[in-house]
Nucleic acid binder design. Structure first.
Lengths: 157, 157
DNA sequence: TATTGTTATACTCTATAACTATA
DNA sequence: TATAGTTATAGAGTATAACAATA
């Protein structure tokens, strides 16, 4: 409830933003910021940012993979990944074990505590995802959105 | 052409990223980053970032509006807007005139040089937008994407 | 030679507090 | 008192270079 029909002379008439509203990239950015903001609100109680959520989930599904493996698939530089995984380690959620096959790399695992934590945050994420699906108009609309995003990010011919 | 059928034992099997690929927010972020990256490549010759493009276009369509007006609609804090508009001023593209009605604020305008510049960058943007539309599969697909993004960012009930 | 993890560093973007001049 | 523009500052996120250990 923000817009009332006749505000007492706001003396600030609405801007014409149609030129930007028609720009796909701009609209994508606004939508992404809005969704991340809602994610952050729901995950504030866990003290978890989107990047940390994705790291934990990927380690759960791919235990024993190296830091570069996880960093690369998320588009994070390995140099910047160090502080992220270190923080998760210090919270007792993840473990870096020396990999026997290649002693340069660290094999990443969830701790017992980490696995229990991931179970909780995945439930919160499932709830949030359902909220987004409802706003979109159902799973078919969600699938359509995913398809369009796929086409947009397909490598150019 | 990246994936060949049988690479010589890459010894780095693909990660399972399905858990993240099903997350709307994650996919939105990847798509937005990809589109912005392409925007940056096309606008590198102009020395123009996305925020600067949007500021110039909004001033063109809304001459005489204040810094807070333009900053607010773009979701930029007025404190951070200062350096942005100052840089555009110093490039001779925009002007900040003291507003006679309210001497606290600056009325923003394009210079003659700025107007000519905007005409050029809008053409580049139109070309890029058409490229995106083609990848999506046509204007109907584009409209569908916009509709879905609208629903996603609609205020919650 | 090339790669992994790491540190250091820099640059952008974003957020807050506080100041001034106006209203 | 509240707002517009401004400065300073701090925090994220991201990018590159370089090093030691290992391949």
């Amino acid at each position: 409830m923000t817009a009332s029909p006749a505000k007492a002379s706001p003396r600030r008439p609405k801007l014409d933003a149609t030129s930007m509203d028609e720009v796909i990239g701009y609209r994508l950015r606004r939508a992404q910021l809005y969704v991340f903001q809602q994610f952050n609100e729901r995950f504030a109680a866990f003290g978890l940012r989107p990047s940390e959520y994705s790291i934990l989930v990927l380690i759960e599904d791919n235990p024993g993979r190296t830091q570069v493996d996880i960093a690369n698939i998320l588009g994070i530089k390995r140099a910047n990944f160090v502080a992220l995984i270190k923080a998760l380690d210090e919270r007792g959620l993840t473990e870096r074990r020396a990999a026997p096959s290649d002693r340069r790399s660290n094999a990443l695992y969830l701790t017992e505590k980490g696995a229990a934590f991931v179970a909780r945050i995945k439930q919160t994420q499932t709830d949030f995802e359902q909220h987004c699906i409802d706003k979109l108009g159902g799973v078919e609309a969600r699938d359509k959105l995913m398809q369009l995003l796929d086409r947009l990010t397909a490598q150019d011919a």
